[in-house]
Amino acid sequence: MNSLYRTLLFVPGNNPGQMVKADIYGADCVIFDLEDAVSIHEKDAARDLVKHYLTDLRPETCRVGVRINAQDTPYYEEDVRSMVSVKPDFLRLPKSETAENIRQLDKLITECEKACGIEAGSVKIIATIETALGVYNAYQIASASPRMIAIGLGAEDFRTDMRMTRSEDGQEILFARNLISLAAHAAGVMPLDYVYSNFKNEEGFIADVRFGKMLGFTGKSVIHPSQVPLVHQVFTPSDEELEHAKKVVAAYEEAMAKASGVVALDGKMIDMPIVVRAQNTLEYAKASGKEL
């Protein structure tokens, strides 16, 4: 398992046929969905299904999360209680609007971890932000709990809340994307790009992933298996980028070994941010299976 969250693949929580195949598409994370993908009459069934699936067949090659129902629904508490008992890597909370939402969830998870004898802090939180208020509070949400590992934008609900007109290339959500990326990096968590729902438009999708990467997003939520390799492809450094990164890191390590404060490559000074970027590049290259 690599340490990246490039792809978070949503899988309906009440479809055993699809759940069994969830781990074959190479996604860095699989998120079993108890929320939008499950009708209100089947919330109980989906919980039992995800619980037994994770007990018997938990995937070994990717991280596992569960998208629970929002805090203002009658399903939320039981979702948290039943899911924490099978120790997913994280719970994804929809409609996160304030830091208080996260603190409440944190508290409930803590209580459940204790009840189940699970090490405190094991289950992390990813917050989906999908309202105007949520975007406005993005930094507070992202920094509300040590369990927070990422925040993501839920574009569809956000557009509705903002009374936006939908465009194909997503111009209208640009500000929210910028803000989510900024808030996440400021809080030291990962920014996750929104779901691009038209999975048949491969070209549009790739362009969108590239743009998101440019804005600083480190991964993307996806709803179709075919989108997984496309995201990874965008996040895979080119051979030239990889070669350059290797040289930078080598120069840095050499400078460290010599206890020299100055890192230089081909006669040029290298700033620390460039070194960090190069280290990130190596990590992405490794996750993509490139030889280092």
Partner: peptide, 9 residues
């Protein structure tokens, strides 16, 4: 089929 495409790839 996404699963068959994984195998084919």
């Amino acid at each position: 089929s996404p699963a068959e495409l994984v195998i084919s790839k």
